[in-house]
Design a protein around this nucleic acid. Structure first.
Lengths: 147, 147
DNA sequence: GAAGGTACCCACTTTTTGGTAAGCTCCTGC
DNA sequence: GCAGGAGCTTACCAAAAAGTGGGTACCTTC
């Protein structure tokens, strides 16, 4: 109980308390959908870590936001999202499709036409991403400018 | 107006339209704070790209969310966020501090005690990140499980 | 006096990410 | 008949991100 803490004895307990608080912070709004007891992002090796990485990948956010309004064609995405390479676009779209966030509609016409749109889950996610991206857009100047 | 589009002639115009739509999508909620005409994330080399990368970095999100409730000490963050290395934690904290999102309070006591907390802007951002992370936590199981 | 805890920094290596460039198929316009 | 666009894929390489291991300074406990 001294000013510098009893150290050794209370550390494991304090750590558990912190981890517990973090878990609740992230899990309380999502108790259980199908029995899963709310994935904890703060735990290593958790599935949510993987998904979080996909979702917060450099290009993933931009693709999801771009598709949040309407479906777009391959070329529209490529030219609409400045700086993305064909490889990265393809890779990002494949990852998002595998995660069930993006729907790919390939029409076997000539020339090929492929439309990308969000799935229900994708729209759900985009609804959370849009305000975030808008906030970043609004505050980027201040952050970079004010060092 | 044929099924396969007149191609060549309408491409530049169509591209401009897409870029315009994307810009409005991201900019309409943040018209002008201090004169900045709303940064467009879809434009290459834009400041918001840089900030978006910081904010959506692997560990950045977790640190911001962890601090969203209370301030935490260095060691609490290190042990609370499983899997983060000391180097990455230090690097992430320095980046977030430079961006004006995290406040560092170092007390020159022995042993040293350093508390990290969010700034006003940091709380603002965390408010957008929390629902996102919660959504990920709630849906990670479905996404990874359903392939 | 050896171990361990606090909060780091630095150099080195590995892993991952992302870009470049080429190729492919089929068709259209010049 | 050759360029060029559509929508990709693959191989190769550079750059960036992240992990590893060591060291620092000072104190406490064993």
């Amino acid at each position: 109980m001294t000013a510098t803490m009893p150290a050794a004895a209370s550390q494991p307990a304090a750590d558990a308390a912190v981890r517990d608080r973090l878990a609740r912070l992230v899990g309380d709004a999502a108790p259980a959908l199908d029995g899963t007891p709310a994935a904890n992002v703060f735990a290593a090796g958790c599935a949510s870590r993987v998904v979080l990485d996909h979702v917060t990948s450099k290009w993933g956010v931009l693709v999801l936001v771009a598709l949040s309004e309407t479906s777009l064609r391959w070329g529209e995405l490529r030219r609409g999202i400045e700086g993305i390479s064909e490889k990265m676009l393809a890779q990002t779209l494949r990852a998002l499709e595998a995660d069930g966030l993006v729907h790919r509609d390939a029409q076997p016409t000539i020339p090929p036409r492929v439309d990308y749109s969000l799935t229900g889950r994708g729209h759900d996610l985009a609804a959370h991403l849009l305000p975030l991206v808008r906030w970043v857009g609004a505050n980027a100047g201040d952050i970079v400018g004010g060092r």
